[in-house]
Amino acid sequence: MQIFVKGLTGKTTTLEVEPSDTIENVKAKIQDKTGLPPDQQRLIFAGKQLEDGRTLSDYNIQKESTLHIVWR
């Protein structure tokens, strides 16, 4: 499925993911596209910070959802 990651600059990155992907895995995909290391990424969805060990489905993140990224 496709999801979007929007940064503070307003730039949006598209990712191809599975609902079973962990947040850690998603951060690795973001690094592949942007070069930003996972330890500098904070992902937010529906006002919650996403924890590395959880999956996208744990947070009810579905296709075409938009996550927000904040740099540490």
Rank of each mutant, 00 (worst) to 15 (best):
T55R: 10
H68C: 09
T9F: 15
D21N: 06
T34P: 02
Q2C: 07
G53V: 06
I61K: 00
Q31V: 04
R54D: 06
T12D: 06
P37I: 07
T55H: 06
G10V: 10
R72F: 14
G7D: 15
G7P: 06
D32Y: 11
G53S: 10
Q62P: 08
Q41V: 15
H68L: 14
Q40D: 07
L36D: 04
P19I: 08
P38N: 07
T13A: 08
I3S: 01
D39V: 09
P19R: 06
T14P: 08
Q40A: 11
G47M: 04
L43Q: 00
V17F: 04
K63Q: 12
G10Y: 05
E18L: 15
T13R: 06
Q62D: 08
L8C: 11
E51V: 09
D52N: 10
T66S: 05
G10T: 08
T12K: 09
L56G: 00
Q49W: 14
D39H: 13
H68W: 12
K29E: 03
T14A: 10
K6M: 11
T66P: 02
D58M: 04
A28K: 15
I30E: 00
G7V: 08
E24A: 14
D39M: 09
P19C: 05
L43V: 05
F45Q: 02
G10E: 08
A46E: 15
V70A: 09
K29M: 13
E16H: 10
T22W: 04
A46V: 06
G47T: 04
I23D: 00
P38V: 15
Q49R: 09
L15M: 05
M1C: 03
S65E: 05
D58G: 03
F45P: 00
F4D: 02
Q31P: 02
D52R: 04
E24L: 14
N25H: 11
G53N: 11
I69Q: 04
L36T: 07
K33S: 10
E64K: 08
Q62S: 12
I30V: 06
V5L: 11
D21K: 01
L8G: 08
N25A: 14
S65T: 07
S20L: 09
Q49F: 13
H68G: 05
K29D: 02
E51D: 09
G53M: 09
K6V: 15
Q62W: 07
K48Y: 08
M1H: 04
G10C: 08
K63D: 14
F4W: 07
K63L: 06
G10P: 05
I69A: 04
T34F: 14
R42G: 07
L56Q: 00
E24N: 07
I69T: 03
V26N: 00
N60T: 04
Q49G: 07
G47S: 05
L43E: 00
W71D: 10
K6S: 08
L15F: 06
K48E: 13
D39P: 07
P19T: 06
E51S: 07
G35Q: 05
A28C: 07
Q49Y: 12
Q49V: 15
R72Y: 14
K27H: 02
K29C: 03
G7Q: 09
K29Y: 06
R42A: 10
G35T: 03
G53Y: 09
I61E: 01
G47D: 06
I61W: 01
Q31H: 15
T22Q: 04
A46W: 07
T55L: 09
S65D: 13
H68K: 08
L15E: 01
